[in-house]
């Protein structure tokens, strides 16, 4: 599974756990739109740290960086590496 697929699957599961089962675009806003909340940002950040070794103490943390699948993929491409 490539990074985009893995990230999309993670986000899909996260949305489903909140009762959001509708189809979504990779460019769709997740956090700023209110589909997901602050606590979910933590989940996304932990996922990126564990799966792609993103060190937010170096990169900094901005919700805009993880607000859509596209944004997350871009963050991983710039700062991540696959661990498992």
């Amino acid at each position: 599974m490539d990074a985009r697929e893995a990230i999309r699957a993670f986000v899909k599961d996260l949305l489903a756990s909140k009762g959001e089962t509708a189809a979504f675009e990779d460019a769709a806003s997740l956090l700023l739109s209110g589909s997901l909340q602050s606590i979910d940002a933590v989940e996304i950040a932990l996922f990126l740290e564990q799966e792609y070794a993103i060190d937010f103490s170096v990169v900094g943390f901005d919700e805009a960086q993880i607000d859509s699948v596209d944004a997350i993929v871009s963050l991983v491409e710039q700062h991540g590496r696959r661990i498992s």
């Binding site: 900094g60 943390f61 805009a64 607000d67």
Partner: peptide
């Protein structure tokens, strides 16, 4: 603090 950085305002 920009709204999107309030959770992680390190930088």
């Amino acid at each position: 603090v920009p709204a999107t950085q309030r959770m992680g305002p390190l930088k």
